[in-house]
Amino acid sequence: MDERIEIRLSGSGGQGLILAGIILAEAAILDGKNAVQTQSYGPEARGGASRSEVIISNESIDYPKVSKSDILLALTEEAMLKYKNGLKENGLLILDSSIEKPDGPYKILSVPILKTAQEKVGKSIVANIVALGTLISATKIVSKEAIEKAVLDRVPKGTEELNKKALYEGYKLVS
């Protein structure tokens, strides 16, 4: 029953974290697992701290919301401050390196997600896909084959190579 992994992706509205959540859930399904994705609606989805939540399990998923997440990704300080208390003790906090590390009982992985998207991939809008690459490289919650297929199935035509590069640069941030 406690096979379930709860992931919260947070940042500011417009950073593509809802799409990232959908892609992550679709990758889990490609791996033959169950997945549920939910998100924040309302004003915060248009700027401010917004979130997308994914639950992955080998069994059927009853309660569809994240209560205490195993993993929190935060791309902005505001989102990190808002959601860090919802992270489990010893949970994994993946932070963009522009954010100051908080004190707390977390395993912190601080990596330059936004900078990598901007400088190495060349487009800041693919930060969500860089973040997915980092998340999966660090946690192995879905297979690399599944996430690559899920990304390519969802991104607009003509941006496949860009997004593939974003995914791989994201992987490389975790050695």
């Binding site: 859930a25 169950n34 997945a35 549920v36 994705q37 939910t38 998100q39 609606y41 998923i61 569809p64």
Partner: peptide
């Protein structure tokens, strides 16, 4: 209800 309407699942 809003939960079952907006959630995505397998």
């Amino acid at each position: 209800d809003e939960v079952v309407a907006h959630m995505r699942e397998k």
